[in-house]
C-alpha cells in the first residue's frame, strides 16, 4: 500500500500541530496584549512628578501630586518582608535537606504544610491577620503589612529553594562533615551551592510580594504620606491602582494607569534580573 498522506492519522497530526502552535501563540498574544495595554495607557500619565512627589491637596479630584507614597510604601513592605522571609526560610530549607533524612516523616509533613500554606489565598491570610490585629488592638499599619506579606512569601521561598536543595548532591555535605564540620557549619557550603535557587526564590517572592493587593488591603491600609514608623499605615502600588481606578474622574484614573505602569516595569525588571543573577551565581555550582 502506498503512502497516503491524506490518511486520517496524518491529517490529525497536522491539525493537532496547528492547534498547538495556535495555543503557544496565544500565550504571546496575551502577554503582549497585557503589556501593551499597560504601557499605552500609562505612558501619558507618566511624568517625573508622578514618581517623585507625594499626593498633594486635591489629588483625588485631579489636582497635582504623585505616587511616591505608594512606591515607598511598597518598597518598605517588600524589602522588610523579603529579608524576614529569607532569615526564616533558609534555615528551614537547610533543616529539611541536611538534618532530616530524605524520607523522614517530619520532612514530608512539613513540605505538605508549606504546599498548603503556599496555596492559601492571600485574602484569607489578610482576613486572618486582620482579626489577629483587631484582637491585639492594633490598627492597619506598616508592621501588619510586613508580617502578613512575610507569611505570604515564606512558603514561596521554601518551596522554590527546596526544589533546588533536593537535587543537592549529598556527597558535598558528607565531604564537609568528614572534615569535622558540624552540620550547622555546612550551611555555608550548602547556601553557596543553592545560591541560584535562593536568588530565583528571592525574585519570585519579591514579585509576588509587590503585586499582592488583597492581604495588604486589610492589614497595611492606605495613606497619602510616607510612613515614619511601623505603626503607621502604608500605601502600596497595587492599591494605588485599585483605589484610583474606582474614581469617576478621568485624571485620577490616568494615575491608576501610571501606577500600573510603574508596577509593571518593576515586575519586568525583577524578571529580567532573575535571569541574569541566576546565570551569575551558578559559577561555583557542582553539577
Amino acid at each position: 500500500m502506498a503512502y497516503n498522506r491524506f490518511k486520517n492519522k496524518y491529517v490529525e497530526e497536522v491539525v493537532a500541530k496547528v492547534l498547538m502552535i495556535a495555543a503557544t501563540v496565544a500565550l504571546f498574544v496575551f502577554a503582549s496584549s497585557i503589556i501593551y495595554t499597560i504601557i499605552a495607557n500609562g505612558w501619558n500619565a507618566m511624568s517625573w512628578e508622578m514618581i517623585s512627589q507625594l499626593p498633594g491637596g486635591g489629588f483625588y479630584i485631579g489636582k497635582e501630586g504623585g505616587l511616591l507614597n505608594a512606591i515607598v510604601g511598597s518598597m518598605y513592605i517588600v524589602g522588610a518582608a523579603t529579608i524576614l522571609g529569607l532569615i526564616v526560610s533558609i534555615p528551614v530549607v537547610f533543616y529539611l535537606n541536611v538534618y532530616l533524612n530524605p524520607n523522614s516523616k517530619l520532612g514530608y509533613a512539613a513540605r505538605l504544610c508549606f504546599d498548603v500554606l503556599f496555596g492559601i489565598p492571600s485574602i484569607v491570610y489578610g482576613a486572618f491577620a486582620f482579626t489577629i490585629m483587631i484582637y491585639l488592638g492594633a490598627k492597619a499599619s506598616l508592621l501588619g503589612g510586613i508580617i502578613v506579606v512575610t507569611l505570604l512569601i515564606i512558603p514561596i521561598f521554601i518551596r522554590s529553594m527546596d526544589e533546588v536543595a533536593r537535587s543537592f548532591p549529598r556527597a558535598i555535605v558528607d565531604a564537609a562533615v568528614s572534615l569535622g564540620a558540624t552540620k550547622w557549619e555546612t550551611i555555608r557550603v550548602v547556601v553557596r551551592q543553592i545560591m541560584p535557587g535562593i536568588a530565583t526564590a528571592t525574585l519570585l517572592s519579591i514579585g509576588r510580594a509587590i503585586g499582592d493587593a488583597a492581604a495588604v488591603m486589610l492589614t497595611a491600609g492606605y495613606t497619602d504620606s510616607i510612613p515614619t514608623s511601623l505603626s503607621q499605615p502604608a500605601a502600596t502600588l497595587p492599591l494605588a491602582v485599585f483605589f484610583q481606578l474606582q474614581s469617576p474622574i478621568p485624571q485620577v484614573q490616568e494615575r491608576a494607569y501610571g501606577a500600573a505602569l510603574v508596577l509593571t516595569i518593576i515586575v519586568l525588571i525583577i524578571s529580567i534580573l532573575g535571569r541574569i543573577i541566576t546565570n551569575r551565581f551558578s559559577k561555583h555550582r557542582i553539577k
Partner: peptide, 28 residues
C-alpha cells in the same frame, strides 16, 4: 566532629566544595 576530623575521607567521586580552590582547603 572530632572523630570525623581524625578520619579523613576521600570519596569515590571527587567532590570539591562549591567554592574556590583556596577556600576548599582553608574551609576545614
Amino acid at each position: 566532629t572530632h572523630v570525623r576530623r581524625k578520619m579523613g575521607l576521600l570519596s569515590q567521586k571527587p567532590c570539591p566544595l562549591p567554592m574556590s580552590i583556596f577556600d576548599n582547603i582553608s574551609y576545614g
